[in-house]
């Protein structure tokens, strides 16, 4: 089961802030709901885990993350993550290319292109929802990323608010909330409305 996703998020502040943040892999990973870096092997290689709770099932993927193709000129990098769930029934991989594009002095854009692959029970049971679930995860990721960048300033009030929101960030993928946003997103798409 493979899905390709393209996403872009508008971020506050100059592009250099976003690019600086993007290179802090451990912090970037923390923007992903339920994800964390458990071990930094070197600058390019990390070990991490992602925990997702969907309905009664909890899946914890343990895996390796490799950072490749860091290009300061283009402000882009590539993250390759690969993991197997601790129960041995599923595996997941993501190949993400992210780059920061300057818009003007007070805003920029984060563009991401991700190819996600899942195998095993996650594909058998969750395959039909994969696109929608990935979409919601990435939206949450974008929101967290935005808050982190906003927290770097220069707008102090916005930075303060962003820090508060970050403090309340859910620590893992919340299946119920996720399911709800997937459903609303699906209905919105069905009736041609704006995606939730």
């Amino acid at each position: 089961m493979k899905v390709n996703m393209e996403k872009s998020f508008t971020l506050p502040g100059p592009a250099i802030n976003a690019w600086t943040f993007l290179q802090q892999i451990e912090k970037v990973a923390a923007c992903m709901p339920g994800a964390e870096i458990t071990e930094a092997i070197d600058e390019r290689n990390y070990k991490g885990k992602v925990k997702a709770k969907i309905g009664p099932a909890t899946m914890a993927f343990n895996g390796d993350i490799v950072v490749e193709d860091i290009d300061p000129e283009a402000m882009s990098l590539r993250l390759i993550g690969k993991g197997q769930d601790s129960k041995g029934t599923s595996s997941a991989a993501m190949d993400l290319t992210a780059r920061v594009i300057a818009v003007d002095e007070s805003s920029c854009e984060l563009q991401g292109n991700a190819e996600m692959t899942v195998t095993g029970k996650a594909a058998s049971l969750g395959g039909r929802m994969l696109t929608q679930v990935a979409d919601q995860i990435l939206n949450q990721f974008g929101k967290n990323f935005e808050n982190n960048v906003a927290a770097m300033g220069p707008d102090e009030a916005a930075a303060q608010q962003a820090k508060e929101e970050l403090a309340q960030q859910p620590k893992e993928l919340n299946g119920l909330a996720l399911a709800w946003s997937v459903i609303t997103g699906w209905f919105a798409g069905l009736f041609g409305g704006k995606k939730a």
Partner: peptide
């Protein structure tokens, strides 16, 4: 089957 060899349709869903 998808190209990764995931069997699809293996539940009564």
């Amino acid at each position: 089957f998808d190209e990764q060899g995931n069997i699809l349709g293996n539940t009564l869903m």
